[in-house]
């Protein structure tokens, strides 16, 4: 057809969505675009004011926006494909949340893989907190997701978690999936004029659970009786103290195979030491193990636990005790960890 429509062409495709958070000068962030198509659904509640507005720091965003990532029917059905594009302009802050675990339903044909892809662009001085509920692939599910974060000039702040459970444990499911893949990548984009758009990989965390590997073992045996695996990726000056908190607590974990000979008198514990001791006991009771590492400007926390609740408690407890996320993003940031 040669006659052109007076309206812009619809860019919405099934499963596609986009979020654009921009800044209305001097310091009011606005969600200038939130669009989505079935089966994806985005819900943006009213933004909340910054919990503790620090007047001494100029140009802090006055509002924190939140977007819930949902799917119709509360899960991803075989063959679904979701594509979400998120852009954070300079000096904005966004919380992404889910409402309950992301359920992946079984597929009749193991070659039909459901997909979910999210690309996030983070401008310098902006920050993303993405602490969702875990992904829960049911027995015979085939799912592949990727979260690709692009930072400009290695700047930008992010605190994102990606975790997966063994299925519906109440129904006896224990990693009975066909296939599960989750990819988290952080790239830096060079915006200087001579290297316009040159990308470099900063971090790749790629989990692949499939039949390959020549182990001759069931997937459940490969998982060493853990039902939850997760990675927390932290980067940027806004989350500096949170990163340090994880590193310090990892350092303070009791030595594996060490013994208390009882020859050192236990001094009166400070409040923090008491919290630590309690948390460590809880970790032991919940069969939770974790590690933290400082690599390439990130703090990477890996954790595994026997039950979902153990991991949830651990994350919530660690983030709350340190407190900076709650201060600069509000209680909503950890809604999925409660």
């Amino acid at each position: 057809m040669s006659s052109s429509s007076p309206f812009a062409a619809s860019t919405s495709k099934p499963g596609y969505g986009s979020i654009l958070l921009s800044l209305l000068p001097p310091n009011t962030p606005v969600l200038s675009n939130v669009s989505y198509q079935y089966p994806l659904k985005l819900v943006a509640p009213d933004p909340l004011p910054l919990p503790e507005h620090d007047q001494s720091v100029p140009n802090l965003p006055s509002l924190i926006h939140t977007v819930f990532l949902l799917t119709y029917g509360g899960g991803i059905v075989a063959g679904d494909s979701i594509n979400l594009d998120v852009r954070l302009r300079n000096k904005t802050r966004l919380i992404l949340l889910t409402q309950g675990s992301t359920k992946i339903f079984k597929t009749a044909d193991r070659n039909v893989v459901s997909r979910q892809h999210m690309a996030v662009n983070i401008a310098p001085d902006s920050a993303l907190v993405y602490l969702p509920d875990p992904v829960q692939p049911f027995a015979q599910a085939a799912f592949s997701q990727s979260q690709i974060y692009s930072l400009e000039q290695e700047a930008g702040n992010l605190c994102v978690c990606d975790w997966v459970t063994s299925g519906r444990s109440a129904r006896g499911e224990n990693w009975d999936i066909h296939e599960y893949r989750s990819r988290n990548e952080v790239w830096t984009v060079d915006t200087s004029t001579e290297n316009q758009g040159k990308r470099r990989l900063l971090l790749r965390d790629n989990l692949i659970l499939d039949k390959n590997g020549q182990t001759g073992m069931l997937l459940s045996e490969r998982m060493d009786a853990y039902s939850v695996f997760g990675t927390l990726i932290i980067r940027g000056p806004i989350f500096k103290s949170l990163s340090q908190h994880f590193l310090d607590e990892f350092e303070a974990l009791p030595r594996i195979g060490g013994r208390n000979w009882g020859d050192s008198q236990q001094p009166e514990l400070t409040r923090k030491e008491q919290w630590r001791l309690q948390r460590q006991q809880q970790e032991k009771a919940n069969g939770l193990i974790w590690s933290a590492a400082n690599v390439r400007g990130f703090v990477l926390v890996k954790f595994a636990s026997r039950e979902v609740e153990g991991a949830r408690t651990f994350l919530n407890n660690m983030i709350k005790e340190e407190g900076s996320v709650l201060k600069s993003f509000g209680e909503r940031a950890v809604l999925c960890l409660k």
């Binding site: 790749r204 790629n206 989990l207 499939d210 390959n212 998982m223 695996f229 193990i289 974790w290």
Partner: peptide, 10 residues
């Protein structure tokens, strides 16, 4: 390329 035995990282 990616981790096929997540507990190995731990």
């Amino acid at each position: 390329a990616g981790q096929s035995v997540p507990v190995m990282d731990l």
